[in-house]
Simulated scan of single mutants.
Amino acid sequence: MKIGLDMMGGDFAPLEAVKGLQLFLSSQEEAPANVFLFGDEAQVRPLLEEHQVPLDRVTVVHTPQVIGMHEHPTKALKEKQQSSITVGFHFLASGKIDAFISAGNTGAMLVGACYSLKSIEGVLRPTISTIIPKEDGKTGLLLDVGLNADCKPENLNQFALLGSLYAKHILGIEQPRVGLINIGEEEGKGNILAQATYPLLKENNQINFVGNVEGRDVFIDSADVMVCEGFTGNIILKLAESLYDITQRKSIEHEYFDRFNFENYGGTPVLGINKPVIIGHGISHAKAFKNMLSLSSKMINSNLFEQMQQAFAPSALS
């Protein structure tokens, strides 16, 4: 197993990436054979030595260029061929690594994931999701959360299937319940998109559809996988993130609100492509990098991608 890590992505790179790498390697009983580190070798190597990262467990790939957080994604990927993100995707596409992680330019990561790698055959659009902490201690999944601001009903139907497979094989939810984010519980509620999506989800025998879920249901145990277009999903995501920020500013301590700390989950995977690509928050610290590495390891070791390929095969969809 070979995991690629962008050492230059994020506001606190490369220090926090190194610290997260050290936490990950020290926590693994059977660590991956190699972690490929893409970044400026002059900056990365002294930090590896300082934080006692075992050098026999990593391979440093020198990349002298960095794609800044505010650069145009497509232009930067094209013009900066020696950047950590560009080279990382080249290694992933060519099979030199099995997964790629970055807390750098989100747009560049999304463009790289969609154009450097092939989507799973049958998938119309890849999607991104976020973990939703439930009040009763369980975990939910919300998608899309920003990659697809405008969608067709067929897209949401596919997101439901992708989310169900991820919830089952990565989150360990045996029979995930799928809910459609809407403004009412009754069938026929909502805008044109929601009204057209409902019957598709209802007829989809590959998922466990439980109907509409409202905003008040997001944080309670009404559904395990909640589906919407990226515009709505991103608003819910940012609202959820603000809950944790507010509790920190007001010194409110509660185990439930602590679960809204994004660092507990590391980053979000791009679902619908053939290999694990995980995108982290720009303000990621060591804990987030450690958890992104753990998630990538879990995705590589699972049969998630084989299950997705089978689910979208023509014979499964007919």
Rank of each mutant, 00 (worst) to 15 (best):
D144Q: 01
S242N: 13
V277K: 07
L293S: 04
D258S: 06
V18M: 09
Q28K: 14
F257M: 06
V178A: 04
M8P: 07
G122Y: 05
N291L: 12
L237W: 12
N191W: 12
S129R: 00
S102T: 01
L271E: 02
Q22S: 07
F38E: 10
L124P: 00
N212H: 13
A76S: 10
E71A: 02
L15W: 00
K96I: 01
L180V: 10
K75S: 05
I173A: 04
G137Y: 13
G9W: 11
S284K: 10
L47S: 02
I3L: 14
N155Y: 14
T74D: 01
I273P: 09
I128F: 11
I283M: 14
K275Y: 08
D136Q: 04
K202Q: 10
A223E: 12
I3S: 10
V61H: 10
G267Y: 14
Y198L: 09
S294K: 06
G190A: 06
L37C: 12
Q248D: 09
L48M: 14
T197C: 03
G190W: 01
L271T: 01
T197H: 04
V270Q: 03
I101M: 12
L142Y: 07
K78S: 14
S83R: 08
S315R: 12
G188K: 03
N34G: 05
G140C: 08
E229M: 04
I183G: 15
K134H: 08
F36T: 12
N274R: 06
G104M: 04
L156V: 08
Q81H: 12
T247Y: 10
M226H: 04
I97R: 14
M308G: 00
F24D: 02
I3P: 13
M8G: 09
E241C: 07
E255D: 15
V277M: 05
D221C: 04
S129F: 01
I278H: 09
D98G: 07
E16I: 03
Y115H: 15
N205T: 11
H281M: 01
P54F: 09
A33H: 14
H285M: 15
I252C: 11
T247K: 05
K19E: 11
Q195F: 02
D40Y: 05
A103W: 13
P276D: 04
N208C: 09
Y265H: 03
E174S: 11
P64K: 04
Y256D: 08
P314R: 03
E253H: 11
F159M: 09
G4L: 13
D144E: 02
P32K: 02
E214W: 15
Q52I: 00
A316Y: 01
P199K: 03
S164C: 07
Q175D: 02
Q195E: 05
L171E: 01
G188R: 06
Q52T: 00
F289V: 07
L48P: 07
G211T: 03
G107S: 00
N264I: 13
K118R: 15
G230N: 02
K138D: 13
Q309G: 02
K290E: 11
F257D: 05
Y256E: 13
V58P: 06
S315W: 08
S318K: 14
P269A: 06
S129N: 05
A113S: 10
R45I: 09
C151T: 03
K96S: 01
P64D: 11
P199D: 03
E16D: 08
S83M: 06
A167K: 00
L25Y: 11
E187H: 15
E185L: 08
F91M: 15
M299I: 10
